[in-house]
Design a protein around this nucleic acid. Structure first.
Lengths: 193, 193
DNA sequence: CCATTAATTTGACCGTGGTCAATTTAGTAG
DNA sequence: CTACTAAATTGACCACGGTCAAATTAATGG
């Protein structure tokens, strides 16, 4: 019969995660080495891969948790009424997501669920983020011609666009906020002839 | 004094690229191994890295060339008049970009210029693509309230959104085209109350 | 308490991208 | 033709993520 999860297992996993967070705090995400994690956690290398399919799965988990904290904060904030306010509210999250090139690339790679059975932490946060946006856009919908969920998906798309351009040396003179606001205005408040 | 580029150099580089294309044709992009490339090209491993800073630079070059071919085709096509026609025209390019998860991730990673001095092939094609979109949208601008270049950037953003979702197991039942059309309609033909 | 079995851990080993000092080859000057 | 120099090539070597058969540890039944 299936045996319960051992306390030892949870302790080992916690030590691995703690070691990883420590390294990230000291040297950043990109610099994290599995060898260094197991060294600090006092385990063998194989143990790491017994707990996490690969290095990226650990990163998915750690980064996903951070994004979730930002989303918790977003749910406390008053519902933004203008594109400017919306961009402003999203800034802390954008700042985290773009804190490192490595982090942003990993987020993009994991933002979609790889398979139905396996929806990772980051993919989950993206679903949650769109839900929050949809809730914002349902209170007093800026556009009547399209449903709030489509409006939310558009905001999502433009957020990514604004962040992506941030890493482009040709266009990184303006901030993410200053690029996002015109997008949101054009998307949420169109004034067609 | 600076000596001219040797013919030998160009031949070696051509052999490396030919070998790479051959492997890609047989096994796909993801399966490409540098060891296999140099084996087929008949050079040492170090030679590969004397010609390309890393494996990704070679991929950037090969994939960038393919994208450019698709853009050449786009310039021959009649200017699309509706979101449906635009989505339709963009489909071959989207299909190539999403032919492999590996390819799409690499494109995203290289779509912005890493530095002003070094604008890679893929980054160049992205600039070119937005130019083409802008030209399309300048002929008979669907929206009068925002400039054609902003309209083009939006199309770009929604293209990426539609392609990204394609890799998400939760939402890949519909085709890229069927996801792109509603985005483009909402972006280019808003009907606010 | 012991035997049995499942879960966990281990570390030697592998695949693959990437480095670099040493060697070979091609061009240049006298 | 020869000596000299810059460019190109080489392959042994390294870094690091990831594998797996064997060993160890913890739970279970008698």
């Amino acid at each position: 019969m299936a045996r319960a999860v051992q306390k030892r297992t949870l302790e080992t996993r916690a030590r691995l995660i703690a070691a990883a967070e420590e390294i990230i705090g000291e040297c950043g995400y990109e610099a994290l080495r599995v060898e260094e994690v197991v060294l600090r956690a006092g385990t063998a290398k194989g143990t790491f891969f017994a707990h996490f399919r690969d290095k990226d799965v650990l990163m998915d988990r750690i980064i996903g948790a951070r994004i979730d904290q930002h989303l918790d904060a977003l749910e406390e904030v008053p519902v933004p009424q203008t594109p400017e306010e919306m961009a402003e509210a999203l800034m802390p999250l954008c700042a985290f997501m773009t804190c490192e090139r490595y982090v942003y690339d990993l987020i993009l790679r994991y933002s979609g669920a790889a398979s139905v059975e396996e929806i990772g932490p980051i993919a989950t946060t993206f679903g949650r983020m769109v839900e929050i946006l949809e809730r914002w856009l349902s209170v007093d919908p800026p556009r009547q011609d399209i449903p709030p969920d489509l409006q939310a998906e558009g905001v999502h798309a433009f957020m990514l666009q604004a962040m992506s351009v941030n890493f482009c040396a040709l266009h990184n003179s303006t901030s993410v906020r200053d690029r996002l606001v015109p997008y949101l205005r054009a998307w949420l408040c169109p004034r067609p002839a």
